[in-house]
């Protein structure tokens, strides 16, 4: 769901889902505050954070719902998916178990979320690639079979975190633009510079 706000031109809600310990909270803190904490506390229920971005001349507020990964919370999480404009499904490239759960998370979002909600599959902890258990080709094949985009990130090194969110937001804008032609002019997507934060964005290759 994309809502129009007085202060912002658009407000969108994104959800971060995936098994416990895959790094969802750190992807969020990296994206919204440029922080990484190896000892962040366990998410119980849901946490929220926002970031404002600029798309063309429009100001957009992204509100991100960072959800608990433990399976038993799923009994109470349908409210989290309601109204989400997009989702990042996260797994840990060093944990085959977390990759095996992706199918269930996908089912969860497709069942409780809005139909056709854009989803990006994220393989996190790229910095630990020497411990990799999920080959890129396996993840890519899965993404392809399920019509998802796939990206690998490292919240620790601040690699591709920006791109992962950017990727999802672009998808959302594109699908939204098809309905509302007036914001088509907004593409291409440019993100506002955060002069208060000094970080270098990694270049990406889109193949």
């Amino acid at each position: 769901m994309v809502t129009i706000d007085e202060e912002f031109d658009m407000v969108i809600k994104l959800v971060l889902i995936g098994d416990t310990g895959v790094g969802k909270s750190n992807l969020l803190s990296r994206y919204t505050r440029d922080e990484f904490n190896s000892e962040s506390k366990t998410t119980i229920g849901v946490d929220f954070a926002t970031r404002t971005i600029q798309i063309g001349k429009k100001k957009m507020k992204t509100q991100i719902w960072d959800t608990a990964g433990q399976e038993r919370y799923r009994a109470m999480t349908n409210a989290y998916y309601r109204g989400a404009a997009g989702a990042l499904i996260v797994f840990d490239i060093c944990s085959l178990n977390s990759f095996d759960s992706i199918g269930r998370w996908l089912q969860e979002i497709r069942e409780y979320g809005d139909p056709g909600v854009p989803i990006v599959l994220v393989g996190n902890k790229f910095d630990l690639k020497h411990l990799r258990q999920v080959p890129i080709s396996t993840a890519e094949l899965f993404a392809h079979e399920n019509s998802l985009k796939y990206i690998e990130t490292s919240a620790l090194l601040n690699s591709n975190v920006e791109s992962a969110f950017q990727f999802l937001i672009t998808e959302i804008i594109n699908s939204f633009s098809q309905v509302h032609k007036d914001i088509q002019e907004c593409t291409p997507l440019t993100f506002e510079d955060r002069s208060d934060l000094s970080f270098r964005r990694k270049c990406c290759v889109i193949n």
């Binding site: 985009k149 990694k202 990406c204 290759v205």
Partner: peptide, 28 residues
């Protein structure tokens, strides 16, 4: 519904999968 959908897609297997979904990779 999913199971029915899967059955349908299996029967039309040949028509899908020509363009892989784009993937972002680290440049390094």
């Amino acid at each position: 519904r999913q199971a029915e959908h899967n059955l349908l897609s299996v029967s039309s297997e040949g028509s899908r999968g020509s363009t892989p979904s784009p993937t972002i990779r680290l440049s390094n």
